[in-house]
Simulated assay, not measured.
Amino acid sequence: MRTAFKLKSVTVAAVLAATAYLPLTAHAALFGDDEARKAILEIRAKIEALQHDIDNKADKNSVLTLSDRNDNLQSQISALRGQIEVLTNEVTNAQQRQKDFYVDLDARLRKLEPQQVNVDGQTVAVGVSEQQAYDAALSQFKGGDYKGAANAFGDFIKRYPQSGYAASAQYWQGNSLYAQRDYKGAIAAQQNVVKNYPDNPKVADAMLNIGSSQAELKDKAAAKKTLEQLIAKYPNSPAAQTAKERLPTLK
């Protein structure tokens, strides 16, 4: 805008300067026709030269202005591209963190979900805390802490009465009581196995434990009856073989 304004201003000044010489043409007789024409031509030449110079300067200024603007725009574009790259990286990292979070969450939830395990030949669903409680109680028994094991298995049965480990917990509680010489408690625990879980493979061993407990209590008649029932009901079991070996001692 300034360049155009200057251009107009200079042009107007030139025109005014040329107009100032008009009286010369009006009084051409004083100078002669040739001299007047020459003066006009010189003025016109000066005006054209000035106009050309102005145009050149205007073009140069325009080019410089456009170049400066282009450099400025390129700088801004580069800065914006840099910001876009940073934001893109942040978005990518956020998406990855979110993905990792959900993968980890899914893994944690899966760990909390009941797992399919094989217990006494049957596939059952067992919760994480349920499995941990059973394993802890069994570990106590294997470690020789029979009192702690008996209590732990008792707690397990109360907390998880419908557990796939319920029959096993009842059986190991009976063995824990037997190891403490609590024969009456052992009999009661093993009778629950026989009564409540008749199809469980531990029933034969439970009956053997009952017979052994009865023998320890000097109730040979009851012990003999239990062992004979064991042999009749589960003749091919290892428990039945052991019962056959013990029967002669009960006479």
Rank of each mutant, 00 (worst) to 15 (best):
Y160A: 09
N151H: 09
D120N: 10
K202S: 07
V119W: 02
P201W: 01
N151L: 12
K202V: 15
A133R: 01
G127Y: 05
D182L: 05
I157Y: 14
S129E: 06
Y183V: 00
A189N: 10
K158I: 07
P201A: 07
D205A: 07
G211W: 12
D145W: 01
V203R: 12
Y165T: 05
F156N: 01
I187T: 03
V124A: 01
Y165S: 06
A188L: 14
Y171I: 12
T123G: 12
D205P: 04
D135N: 08
A188P: 02
Q180F: 15
W172R: 08
S176W: 14
P161F: 00
I187R: 02
A206Y: 02
Y183K: 03
A167H: 06
K147P: 08
N196K: 15
A179G: 13
P198E: 06
N196Q: 15
F141G: 12
D145I: 01
A152M: 02
V128Y: 11
S139G: 05
I187H: 06
Q132T: 01
S139I: 07
A136Q: 03
N151Y: 10
N118P: 01
Y160I: 06
G164Y: 00
A179N: 15
N151Q: 13
G127M: 04
V203E: 13
Q170H: 06
K142M: 12
Q122K: 11
Y165W: 08
A137Q: 02
A166Q: 10
V119I: 11
Q170D: 03
W172V: 09
K195I: 07
A186I: 03
A169G: 04
G143P: 08
D135W: 04
Y165P: 04
A166C: 09
A152Q: 05
G174Y: 06
Q131N: 05
A125T: 06
K142P: 00
G127R: 09
Q131E: 03
N200V: 06
F141I: 14
A167N: 11
K202R: 11
A186K: 09
D199A: 12
K142F: 13
N209F: 11
N200M: 02
N192P: 01
K184I: 15
D155S: 13
S213Q: 07
Q214S: 03
L177I: 06
V194R: 11
Y183G: 03
G121K: 03
A125Q: 13
A167G: 11
V194K: 13
I187C: 08
V128L: 09
N118Y: 10
E130A: 04
V194Q: 12
Y160T: 03
F156Q: 01
I210Y: 08
S176L: 15
A179S: 15
T123F: 09
Q173G: 13
G185P: 11
